[in-house]
Design a protein around this nucleic acid. Structure first.
Lengths: 367, 367
DNA sequence: GTTGTTTTCACAAACGATTGTGTAAAGCGC
DNA sequence: GCGCTTTACACAATCGTTTGTGAAAACAAC
């Protein structure tokens, strides 16, 4: 019998639109339209409403708005994982761009698993996100769950790892260019037999890095030798394994471009274990500019991926679609390609700068 | 004049509660209550409803539900940053536990900035999250924004980095124990003068790690010497700087326990630059088990923080509060303390295992 | 057959913002 | 002062779900 109408759940936003309307003696319509700058509201009324809203620190209830408009102020993000340097940096860029536009981001990790990725999609759909940003899992070979998203009319933007096909929005790195730059650099440092450790060719990014490697070889008039390419997971173990095989060849390589920094590290360590000197006997280049690459000894030459730009660009592209769709316009899908940056360090420098100077850490995390 | 009622925005969930009700010839009340297992619905009616819901893959509209119940299925997370190993791992644990309970997580990064942290709180409040998990920024010395959250009746759980005071929910690591274990280990390896690189004493975690250091010294009957402690940021630069000062002392240390791995790395590198051998002349221990610690040469002894457990425990604690509050109960705030784990590597091993065997990377991220 | 109890369900009012439609009031020319 | 357009606002329905209240049906006890 006790009056516990508002006792259990304290009102989330102390002041609602109705409160403002009551205080001003106008209807909720007027308040709503004044706040959204509708043309049918007079300028001085708009000012009065906005001032009162500021005074009471009015925050519109997003649930109500989302319910009515059928669209929330949430952007869904699916990444394979968050460890490392790349994805956190991209996510930070996304968050920056999203919050500038009044959006929040919901992050899901697929753990490189198709099933997980499907569930993430379901989860984001049921959270009524306004759009989805996704970097597909390594194991994804079925893309129907993404079609379902488009089927519901939800804007979808891929970043870094995309899906096959052209009729889609994507922001990617020019991985071919990255592979080309790294390989050309290794050749310019005197590499005559450059090996390649490639990632799983199922992912476009790895195919492109491989292509860049071949382009650089072709440009130098060198053949692509089967025995000098090895594909595997981007792990220390696989990198070391590949190096063992190469060093067992009658004519082993004198440089290696790995499509991932972890594999580069493993290959480098294995070469050193077998008595070779890096970079003199074996030059090494990686990909991703992972946090450990400037720390390793010798520090590792690698390719930086413009993480922050990628995140911001992806969100901008998504928001363009969301806005266009809200106005009933169709928006042609678009692909953005960012240019990577080669970062030369000790592991590949045979010429010049003979005394390697220590380099400060790229991004020293502070806890 | 064209009928574009549903043309612009495709319905997000193809089937609503009303559809189910119509098909079954019952009211929406019945459907709603059948799905939420309300006592007033008969068992066979419940079954009928649930079967139809499954058949149509009915997904309740979360916005509507959230609006009505004044609470969404979102948990807000605020972390200082995502780079590195610790926070991504914690977040993964949180996501796991949250999704098991049907929640999504909204992640914000404060960038170690108080202003950012305040805006994050506002942003999460306006996203109507059901509760907030936060690890406070390094620069936060004013906690009123957290009081505001509690004032609104929103459950709040701190993790790792907490706020001063006792009447709060928190899941933390026993940092004192970690500092104690690391220091005791350095002493057991023959360290006679163990230095300490501490983090900013404003954060409890760093005060506790320092306390553990002192406890271990006291236990060994050693004094805490002012000149052997140095406080700063957990960066390579600060670590190197501290080492320079120590090595300039008439009686320099022979071991150092750093409250962070980056500082440990910097200190180690500086010692080597000055001609010392690690661990023979200078044993080094860090904190956090960062990804690079097993890669560094020599690999770095450190303290692991039970990231996954911390994340899961924090979410469980938060959900307990949310559920209790939904039932109108009061729930006493609680603190959970996790035990850290010392991971001994080359940088501190003076005794035994003289030929360091390479160790596989703790978590090789794969891209 | 009446009363009382339990089970099972429907009615309708919320939640808070948005928006198509309706309608006063104001301004204008004549 | 009439008809006209333009400006400025209110009414009320709506989004999809939840929930207090009430009432019909079923059943038991006497």
């Amino acid at each position: 019998m006790a009056p516990r109408k508002k006792a259990a759940s304290v009102p989330n936003s102390p002041v609602s639109m109705a409160d403002l309307a009551r205080e001003l003696g106008v209807s909720m319509t007027t308040v709503s339209r004044a706040l959204s700058d509708h043309f049918s509201i007079g300028p001085e009324m708009k000012l009065k409403v906005q001032k009162l809203a500021k005074k009471y620190n009015y925050q519109p209830n997003r649930m109500a708005s989302a319910l009515r408009k059928g669209q929330s102020k949430l952007l869904g993000i699916i990444v394979p994982y968050l460890e490392g340097r790349f994805f956190p940096k991209v996510v930070r860029g996304m968050e920056t761009a999203a919050s500038r536009a009044g959006y929040n981001v919901v992050i899901c990790q697929s753990n490189e698993d198709l099933g997980h990725e499907r569930r993430n999609i379901e989860s984001l759909l049921s959270a009524q996100v306004a759009g989805i940003l996704v970097s597909v899992s390594r194991t994804t070979d079925d893309f129907r769950h993404f079609e379902k998203v488009r089927g519901r009319g939800l804007p979808l933007v891929f970043f870094d790892r995309t899906m096959p096909g052209n009729a889609l929005n994507a922001v990617v790195l020019d991985d071919r260019e990255g592979g080309y730059l790294a390989t050309r650099h290794l050749l310019s440092q005197g590499g005559r037999r450059v090996a390649h450790f490639g990632g799983l060719q199922q992912l476009t990014i790895y195919r492109n890095r491989y292509q860049g490697y071949r382009d650089a070889l072709a440009e130098a008039g060198l053949p692509v030798e089967e025995e000098l390419t090895h594909f595997g997971d981007n792990t220390e173990q696989d990198g070391a394994e590949a190096m063992r095989r190469w060093l067992a060849l009658p004519n082993p390589p004198d440089a290696v471009f790995a499509a991932g920094d972890y594999a580069a590290l493993g290959a480098m360590q294995e070469a050193e274990r077998q008595g070779l000197v890096v970079p003199a006997d074996m030059a090494v280049g990686g990909f991703s500019n992972e946090t450990f690459t400037p720390i390793a000894k010798p520090s590792i030459t690698t390719v930086d991926q413009r993480c922050d730009e990628m995140g911001q660009a992806a969100v901008r592209l998504l928001l363009e679609h969301i806005d266009a769709q809200a106005q009933g316009l169709e928006f042609a899908s678009r692909q953005l390609v960012l240019r990577p940056e080669l970062i030369v360090r000790e592991s590949s420098q045979r010429l010049g700068r003979l005394s390697p100077t220590p380099e400060p850490l790229a991004d020293a995390a502070v806890q």
